[in-house]
């Protein structure tokens, strides 16, 4: 191809092609496992494998029975409901507290900034099993184990670092003189925040919130330790299903979750573009 400069040797070109081939193979490795479960979820047989019929594209080998199975199973319905309830409240708590804190952290006057930032981001790094064990010991004292508030608090703590990271990133492009102007014009800090700061950093807040939501929505280790039978969530239900009774209902749920993540991805991309546009204007 003519894209290569004249000084390239043949070995160099081969090298480039080998590199591209490797990259393509890695992309394939990344995406294949996600794609493979989608056709499997339409299996009409109760197996995790492709049947002969599926490979020869017989219509009878495919069915929606596992999707019906989700709807017919009250445990799955409860799990879906709980996942959204817990995710919603954990997101609210994490986003509100995280956004306000990020504004404070972004201030040049913030004392002990480095230490406090490292502390607030640490829930992202500490292994979940340690957090789960600690929360089990500590939350028991407040009767929070096996309750919705307990899980909301736990998941909010996990979501906070993501909110801080994304909001801080948006704030780095934010002109602080606007905030100071608001203050000097006589508005209180809260008013200034709501009217001046928030509209400008909204894309960062929303994507932080999305991260917090996904964190809660995907989380299973804390749920295993802290949830009672009433609080089962989708990942919890999948985990016990995979451990005990593998059937394609899990694949159907997994396929639905892939669709959810595609939506998340699209939303984030739109937010990113909007944020760039906003910053361009500011």
């Amino acid at each position: 191809m003519s894209e290569f400069p004249a000084y390239f040797t043949i070995w160099h070109k081969i090298g480039i092609y080998a590199l591209r081939f490797t990259a393509a193979a890695v992309l394939f490795f990344l995406i294949l496992p996600i794609l493979v479960i989608i056709p499997l979820s339409f299996n009409s047989q109760p197996y995790f494998t492709f049947t002969e019929g599926m490979l020869s594209f017989e219509a009878s080998a495919y069915s929606l029975r596992w999707y019906h199975a989700i709807l017919e199973n009250p445990n799955w319905i409860l799990a879906i409901k709980n996942s959204f309830i817990i995710g919603f409240f954990a997101t609210i708590v994490a986003t509100v507290l995280g956004t306000i804190a990020a504004v404070g952290l972004a201030s040049p006057d913030m004392p002990m900034k480095r230490v406090i930032t490292a502390l607030l981001l640490s829930p992202m790094i500490v292994p979940l099993i340690i957090i789960a064990a600690g929360m089990f010991f500590f939350y028991t004292r407040f009767n929070l184990v096996g309750t919705f508030p307990g899980l909301v608090i736990a998941h909010a703590a996990l979501g906070v670092p993501f909110v801080i990271v994304t909001v801080t990133a948006t704030l780095s492009g934010f002109d602080r003189s606007l905030y100071n102007a608001g203050l000097s014009l006589g508005a209180g800090p809260l008013r200034t925040f709501m009217d001046v700061v928030l509209p400008l950093i909204r894309p960062g807040v929303i994507s932080g919130g999305l991260f917090a939501f996904v964190t809660s929505f995907d989380e299973v280790v804390l749920v295993l330790f802290l949830a009672g039978p009433d609080q089962r969530t989708i990942p919890r239900q999948m985990f016990s299903g995979l451990r005990e009774q593998i059937n394609p209902t899990i694949l159907a749920v997994a396929t639905l979750l892939v669709i959810v993540s595609v939506c998340m991805l699209v939303t984030l991309e739109l937010l990113r573009r909007r944020s760039e546009r906003l910053r361009g204007v500011a």
């Binding site: 409240f89 609210i92 709501m194 009433d230």
Partner: peptide, 20 residues
Amino acid sequence: TLRSALIGSAALLAMAAGPV
């Protein structure tokens, strides 16, 4: 607004966690 969001979520949380 922030306030109505907070009140709304408190109410919903109370419902979710309320007496079994």
